[in-house]
Structure formats: C-alpha cells, structure tokens
Amino acid sequence: MNEFIQHTINGLALGSIYALVALGYTMVFGVLQLINFAHGDIFMLGSFVGLYFIRYGIPNAEPSFLTAIMVIIVAMAGSALIGVIIEKFAYRPLRKSPRINILITAIGVSLLLEYGGQLVFGASPQFFPDILPRKNIDLGGNIILDSNQITIFVISFVLMQLLQFMVFKTQFGRAMRAISHSLETANLIGINVNKVIFITFIIGSSLAGAAGVLYGVAYPKIDPLLGVLPGLKAFIAAVLGGIGNITGAVIGALILGLSETYVAGYISSTYRDALAFVILILVLLLRPAGLLGSKKIEKV
C-alpha cells in the first residue's frame, strides 16, 4: 500500500509536467488544427535556457525561492521567443497549405531543433543544478515527498490556474475560443487572427519552457534529445483527454503519468515507453474524440 502511494505521488509529479506540455499542444491544435511536433523540443530548449541562465546569468546564486522563480521566468521567456520565431518563419507561410504540408514542416522543425541543439549544446547530457533547497519530507511508512515534487505541484497548479483565467475570463481567451470554432468566421467578425495565434504560441511555448525547468529539476540530466519522448507523450495525453480541450489535456496527462509510473513500478520499466503508444492507439481506435472531446461529424 505504501509503495502504491509512493508511486502515485511520483506519477502525479510526472503527470503535472506532461500536463504543462500537453496544454501547449492542445491550444495550438485548437486554433490551427496543427500537431505542433516541435513543441517537445521547445520544452527541451526551455530546460537548456534555464540551465544556461543558472550557469552564466546568476552563477553565484544559492538555491532559493527567488532563484527558482527567476529561472522559470527566464526559461518561459526564452521558450516563448523560440515558439514565436517558429510560428512566424515556419508555420505562418504555410497557413493556407494542406495540413499534411504543415505537419511535415513541423516534423522538420522538430528535427532541426533537436540536432541543431546537439550542435549548440553538445550531444552529451549535462547536469541541471538544484534551484530550490532539496529536502525530503517523510510522510511515514517509507513514503517520501521530495521538495522538488512540491515545487512541481505548486508551479504547475499556479500556471494552470493562470491559463484557465486567461482562456475563460479575458477578451483574448474569448477570441481564441472563437478561432478554435472557426478560423474564417472569427476573421470575418473582426478578430485579428494572426495576433491571437501569435499569443497562443507565446502562452503554449512558455508553459513548455516552465515544464522544461521542472523536468530538469526532477530528472537532473538533460540533453538535446530529451524533448522527444516527453513531447510525444504529452501529445498522447492531449489526445487522450480530447485534443483541443484544456481540462482534458490536464486529465489525460495525469492519467498518463500515473499509469506510466505504475507500469514501471509493477511490471517492467522497459515497457513503460510502449504503454503511452498503446494508450494512443486504443484511444484513437475506440474513441477518437478523447475522453472529454466532442465528436465531429464529417459533412460532404
């Protein structure tokens, strides 16, 4: 039982990181109907921006609450910048092309970031330092709550609340939801579509950047290919929850994080990566709209 609780805590922490990445996938898909393959690599770049900021921006900083906030904000800003550049130079020229072309471009951008990352950062893993004082809290009965896990829970909760507010309570959020219904109609009623897409990329990418720092905190070895699997899994989480649906993305990510941790803990860690793909296939074959998504009827 204690083991189960420990796995649950670890799984929720992993799921929270997936959730932050999945939100970016789901938002971009909502407005553009595009699987932004490069999103996982923006997550990776967030991690590296954080690392380089700690290393060169604040070389003498002690791990503290202020350091953590600073690193996360810088990483968010860096990822947002990269996301915007990608949107402007790779996706925007293709706005009117067939979806397959945009998807192939996204794959290309993703590969470019991964291997360009190897060129810039080097291919070998680098150590991500602590940004908060590390402390293990014993909950009794061998259950350990890592202080890093608390950081992950708190920060992802705050960011998700912010996002929820932005999407459902502000003018921008209303425009974004309008575009996800119909891009053309939104354009006709005077919404500046390009601007909203731009802001969507800023928000999605900055969430991925924050997730990148949290990932570095939780698994302190980072390399330029680290975004590939978490990126794919976050996408799968978004599909599981119903792509385009913000609450769904969070629920899907938590389910995925938990089930992965259980499989790794009770069955075999080599099959952990296969699990996500099995979930993806099952969801798409049995309920393509996802858990919370609504079914779309194809008209002639």
Partner: peptide, 11 residues
Amino acid sequence: IIYALTMVLIM
C-alpha cells in the same frame, strides 16, 4: 540537420 532543413525549406 540537413534532413530537417531540406524538409522545412522544400515545404
């Protein structure tokens, strides 16, 4: 990197 660049530029 070449694969990636050719893919994006061609598209």
